[in-house]
Design a protein around this nucleic acid. Structure first.
Lengths: 207, 207
DNA sequence: ATAAAATTTAAACAAACGTTTAATTTAAAC
DNA sequence: GTTTAAATTAAACGTTTGTTTAAATTTTAT
């Protein structure tokens, strides 16, 4: 959307890193400026304030999601395959932007609503809507159960993935994942398979 | 464990509230002291530092979990019923201590490991172990599938619940839950039912 | 080449931070 | 009742915070 120059992109990248590592309050403008190799005042100059910097970061990172959702829905696939594709999209998006998701999920949880999260909430509503359409499609075809809470399906997918990433230290210890690659690989293989298996079991299971 | 006097309990309660509302960095010693109606210096006097205050809070809130897990395992129930009981225990514990969980899940996610989370990691390992024993019991009896990732079952349960609570604002909007009671009721009814249904479907589903 | 606008800088700002100090009050012990 | 220890206080400590300023530099336009 809004295009940024190189220096602005440097600032956004540094902010993403430090916000995720130390939290919004924990990260200081001075550290962000040093990480981005710019003067302290440049952040106020370009973004206005620390809060507006976070806002710009989130909008920058969430743009484009809506289009990808539309693409999946319009593909010529069975509902079950569309669900698979949707799960893959979720995981790759969240994995790609894990820093930003970490920031947002924390900021959303605090009571002092430091910013207007409308852009992010819109994305989430679109996700729910995409799932609703696909699952109802499958229900109409008789391949999906009908006694399920569709709204909670995205919550389930994102909840498992985000919780796994948020507890990285514990997971690494318990699963003996001793490198970044091993951790990434576990998400890409075992965790993704588990999520797909879980959602499929829920949608297809018959008593 | 360690017993606290009334003033210390006031401080712990105020700290829990403000840490959860504003994050560890966002909450200030001065605000905590005002909330607890004590002098600023009393916090250093009793707990030593802000970090040690958080540490004391977590140990205070997690004590007793291990015993409850043992009780469930030793009850005379079917594996499926034990899983149900375990899910109920999870949800009630996390619901009861939602502030503390919110704090911990954020602190665990930051890279600057500000404190020794050993007490909390131990609890999590015990949870995993409890599930492993119960599910393997069910597998031995032939009532549970064997091609599942047992380690990820607690992750799934806690992930769904924590993610729901962390995104309270979004959930309230999307589900039109317009009061605290309505939100609590949704967790107690719909969300709990969804989690149980999901785990059961995963454990029992046959292709 | 010159004027105007945009960028970049070091320095300063007031405010808030966690913690400590030293003095005072309260409680306990003998 | 006196002494000793614990609890409590207001004030000050030195840092760090986000933001602003005003001057210097670079870029752009004419």
């Amino acid at each position: 959307m809004t295009d940024f120059n190189d220096k602005q992109l440097d600032i956004l990248q540094a902010a993403e890193k430090l916000f995720a590592e130390e939290g919004f309050d924990g990260a200081s403008i001075r550290n962000i400026a040093r990480e981005a190799n710019v003067n302290i005042a440049m952040i106020s100059y370009y973004f206005g304030s620390k809060e507006k910097l976070l806002e710009a970061l989130i909008i920058h990172r969430t743009s484009g999601m809506k289009m990808q959702l539309e693409n999946i829905f319009n593909e010529n696939l069975s509902p079950a395959d569309k669900v698979d594709r949707l799960i893959d999209l979720y995981i790759s998006r969240i994995n790609k932007n894990k820093c930003m998701y970490q920031i947002v999920h924390f900021e959303l949880s605090t009571k002092k609503r430091i910013m207007d999260m409308k852009a992010f909430i819109d994305i989430k509503l679109q996700n729910v809507e995409a799932f609703k359409r696909i699952i109802q499609e499958g229900q109409a075809q008789g391949v999906f159960r009908k006694d399920i809470n569709i709204f909670l399906i995205p919550t389930t997918i994102v909840g498992i993935l985000v919780h796994f990433q948020m507890n990285r230290m514990f997971m690494e210890t318990a699963l003996q994942l001793e490198s970044d690659d091993a951790f990434e690989a576990y998400i890409k293989n075992e965790l993704t398979a588990h999520i797909k298996q879980t959602i499929k079991a829920l949608l297809l299971h018959e008593n």
